[in-house]
């Protein structure tokens, strides 16, 4: 008897171990601009007491979908980079009536990894992307709305899900479990704050040096920053500029003779690395000199200050 029980336990455990764990799809940011917070008005059905709530995410394709309490006109941002593969934006206010199911405005972004994100109920004519367009994470997609099947008055919200990319001739598929980088799997009633990408964002990649130079001696170097926003950087506005503490914002540096260094590429798309080549020049007087540099789109905004500097030991 005891042996049979042990065997049963082992078999049960083996069966449990052998069962494939469902992978949670990650790499997502909340689908609205950084700094914004919206209430989770409905979680996936797995996190509801469906017998009690009868929520619309309890059955069918949307069992892993989230509803966020965006209102008509609130901006929706791409939760993941991707290419627009489906686009409907020609309908007005919807209804709780299932007759309006085929009149929903929505956009599908193909992530290129077998999965796509889907954004439902966008406002009439509000799409800020075009069919076939590739957009970076954080890029505005459209405004929230109330087209399609929405309940309430006006019932506006964003319905968001990730699904296996549908083949041609197949509409959206069953959603998969997801988590957001900044919020995990947010609970109903919470209002997670988006840390999605902003339009202009830079991340230092490399190039900073500590150089020993003589008077007037020149040393070529290059600063590298990745475009971590959703907008492109274009010449001539995209540069790196002098910043504090040394020399000070916009002040010419004794090490470079200028207050700006030009971007070498004409356009740097989201995710690409921009290079800024320049020369360090040994000052007249001996000493330790630094030049702090920070990416800037002149006339628009400075990007992140990561305290990056080059140091010259003038001997």
């Amino acid at each position: 008897m005891r042996g049979a029980l042990v065997a049963l336990c082992v078999l049960t455990r083996l069966a449990f171990v052998a069962a494939p764990a469902q992978a949670t799809y990650g790499g997502l940011r909340l689908p609205f601009p950084p700094g914004r917070a919206y209430v989770v008005t409905q979680t996936p059905g797995a996190y509801q007491n469906c017998a009690l709530t009868g929520g619309s995410h309890c059955v069918g394709n949307d069992i892993w979908a989230y509803d966020f309490g965006l209102h008509i006109g609130d901006q929706i941002a791409a939760a993941h980079s991707g290419t627009v593969i489906r686009y409907v934006a020609g309908f007005g206010i919807g209804s709780c009536d299932p007759a309006f199911r085929n009149d929903a405005n929505y956009i599908v972004l193909d992530h290129g990894d077998g999965y796509s994100s889907i954004y439902w109920h966008i406002s009439y004519g509000s799409a800020s992307v075009a069919p076939g367009q590739y957009v970076a994470q954080g890029h505005p997609i459209a405004d929230a709305g109330a087209a399609g099947i929405v309940c309430g008055n006006p019932g506006d919200h964003l319905h968001f899900a990730v699904e296996p990319t549908p083949a041609a001739g197949v509409s959206v598929q069953r959603s998969v479990q997801i988590r957001f980088d900044e919020a995990g799997e947010p609970a109903a009633g919470t209002a997670p704050v988006s840390a999605n990408r902003s339009r202009l964002s830079a991340t230092y990649v490399g190039g900073s040096e500590w150089v020993v130079l003589g008077n007037g001696e020149r040393h070529p170097t290059t600063g590298l920053w990745r475009n971590s926003g959703w907008g492109s950087w274009t010449q001539p506005a995209s540069r790196i500029g002098t910043f504090g503490p040394e020399p000070k914002q916009d002040q010419p540096s004794v090490l470079t003779g200028t207050n700006r260094v030009a971007q070498s590429q004409s356009v740097v798309s989201p995710g690409e690395v921009a290079s800024y080549p320049f020369e360090l020049i040994g000052p007249t007087a001996p000493g330790i000199y630094r030049v702090y540099l920070r990416p800037v789109i002149d006339g628009v905004a400075w990007m992140e200050d990561e305290g990056v500097f080059w140091l010259v030991d003038r001997r």
Partner: peptide
Amino acid sequence: VLGDPGPGAAWSYVGV
């Protein structure tokens, strides 16, 4: 099948 909010079970195989 009306409760399914996805592409729509009720809307599958319909003429419009």
